[in-house]
Design a protein around this nucleic acid. Sequence first.
DNA 1: ATAAACCCTCTAGTTAACTCTAGGTCAAGT
DNA 2: ACTTGACCTAGAGTTAACTAGAGGGTTTAT
Lengths: 130, 130
Amino acid sequence: MSYYSISEVAKELNLTVYALRYYDKEGLIPFVERTPSGTRLFKESDIEALKIIQCLKSTGMPIKEIKGFIAWCSEGDSSLQQRYNLFLERKAAVEAQLAELNKTMELINHKCNYYRTALDAGTEGIHKIG
Amino acid sequence: MSYYSISEVAKELNLTVYALRYYDKEGLIPFVERTPSGTRLFKESDIEALKIIQCLKSTGMPIKEIKGFIAWCSEGDSSLQQRYNLFLERKAAVEAQLAELNKTMELINHKCNYYRTALDAGTEGIHKIG
DNA sequence: ATAAACCCTCTAGTTAACTCTAGGTCAAGT
DNA sequence: ACTTGACCTAGAGTTAACTAGAGGGTTTAT
């Protein structure tokens, strides 16, 4: 089993070493090992966990709540139901975000048409008159 | 032509009066009229402009940049090309966000399955062994 | 005419999620 | 032995987008 340094993990996951240390300080990755002198040693499974963390973050979940999820993970099977519920909630959140973004896209498309036709005509006036 | 108060507009657009005054201070709505004593008077067209602002905000555009767009709008036809380009960029940004969110959704769905089957089995162990 | 319910400005405070600096340790190469 | 580069912690600073409070004017209903 091989280990990765914090800067290797940062590069791989496209985030900064500062961010990784911040996540550690906030309790998102309590399972990361250390050398006797304190240097963090990341395993493959730690990187996978960070990917889940990034996924939850991208659903709009704040770090404090992600920390709660991580704590549940280390509690074992007794928290299975909670963790399942959490992902169902996140699924609903993402669905809502997708709906919102699609509405946004519609308006943007309208504006693209508006400006394309205005440019064709050379003036915005065509949309304002009759 | 009728006018709306700041709190009416806030209610209609589902944001706070604080936020509206903040937008005004940041130069997003310089066209809003005032009574002689300083009270803001919002027209229907101002509400429409605020909807565009909300739309741009939901694409992830920061307020400072939206302010630039608003300034272009008051420059008339000479900024048509810039404004068109801006919306094309926003369209690309939203497309990227949609792609990202769909990837997130996929992982969430995997996790939902993971936990549903784990709950059926009564233990997470089924996913770790074999 | 007076109190309630608005409105205003200005300024300070809040929050999340980093981001950076200072000061120090440690392991490897020359 | 010594320099280089990566690592560490603690804590201060940053940024965006509000949010709230103080202090004060105005409009409306009784």
